[in-house]
């Protein structure tokens, strides 16, 4: 399984970024290889509009099985993400990536 997180940093100890479109980083954990990688998403800071759909396109290309985020995507981004089969889990704000992943494994995160 490939798990993507919206994050404010790039390590397991980084906090989940509660924002979807304007998340600082997109962190990807590949359970098969154990590799943690990240994409710098800070360029959306310069976007006045469409941060949600821009980030949705990036997530779509990463093509994770699960996305773990905070507040959840807005309407436009959600519409875009529905084009894939990924499961979107929300309300992971105030957690580190590690905590969020553990919560996910226990099935304690809400589905969007």
């Amino acid at each position: 399984m490939k798990i993507a997180f919206t994050a404010s940093g790039t390590s397991w100890e980084s906090k989940i970024d509660p924002r979807f479109g304007r998340a600082e980083f997109l962190v990807i954990y590949d359970e098969a290889s154990g590799a943690l990688s990240s994409i710098d998403n800070s360029s959306v800071k310069n976007e006045a509009h469409g941060a949600g759909t821009a980030t949705a396109q990036k997530i779509f290309e990463i093509n994770p099985d699960v996305l773990i985020t905070g507040n959840g995507p807005g309407d436009h981004a959600a519409t875009a993400l529905r084009h894939s089969k990924m499961k979107i889990l929300v309300n992971a704000h105030d957690m580190t990536l590690k905590q969020a992943y553990e919560q996910y494994q226990k099935g304690l995160l809400n589905e969007f």
């Binding site: 509009h49 469409g50 941060a51 759909t53 821009a54 949705a56 436009h76 519409t79 875009a80 894939s84």
Partner: peptide, 20 residues
């Protein structure tokens, strides 16, 4: 070319967001 990300490519589809 879309400054507003109103047109995005999702796999085999181009999706337009009219409100954006």
């Amino acid at each position: 070319v879309c400054n507003y990300h109103a047109v995005i490519r999702l796999g085999p589809s181009i999706v337009v967001f009219p409100e954006l």
